[in-house]
Amino acid sequence: MKDIALHILDIAQNSVSAGASLIVIETVEKPSADTLTVTISDNGCGMDSETVRKVTDPWFTSRTTRRVGLGIPLFMQSAVQAGGNLDISSGPGKGTKICAVFCHSHIDRPPKGDIAGVISMLAGANPLIDFVYRHVYEDIEYRFDTREVKKILEDIPLNEPSVIGYMKEMIGENISGLEG
């Protein structure tokens, strides 16, 4: 995984598979505290404690097409290499929350990557699921919510290619504006 955006794309798929109807993704950048925190939480089926314990093991997967599951282990490795850690909290019927903390200035902290592209792609690929993306830089925040987009666009589906393009543009403009 080259950057944080790709990790988000990958980990959010787990929430989709868990049958979530709402997926909340947050990136909180606090250079003053030297942290970059990425949180992905969903209201999907959740996992029991035994499963939570096993998901960081690369040899564990819920799939049947192959015997390894690298999504969470790679995300964890990425965070640990950058002086941070990964925490999972989940319970059956309670949804799942995955939180990775990176040391913001660490030389091995992956770049953020194309977060706008990833969020719009997730929203477009799963029009029935609601996505919230929050990006915080120090004290300023941008919040994107597909429920608001759906309200405005009414009958126009979010999987329409031009809509995906516009969502990407909108998120990208706003999050790059945060640092400016």
């Binding site: 608001e148 126009i156 329409e160 516009y166 909108m170």
Partner: peptide
């Protein structure tokens, strides 16, 4: 013009609807 806000997105609605139909 670039779409920067939900209001900008709303302006694109007509164009989108005609594309779809």
């Amino acid at each position: 013009a670039k779409v920067k806000s939900l209001a900008d997105l709303k302006k694109m609605k007509e164009q989108l609807q005609s594309d779809i139909s």
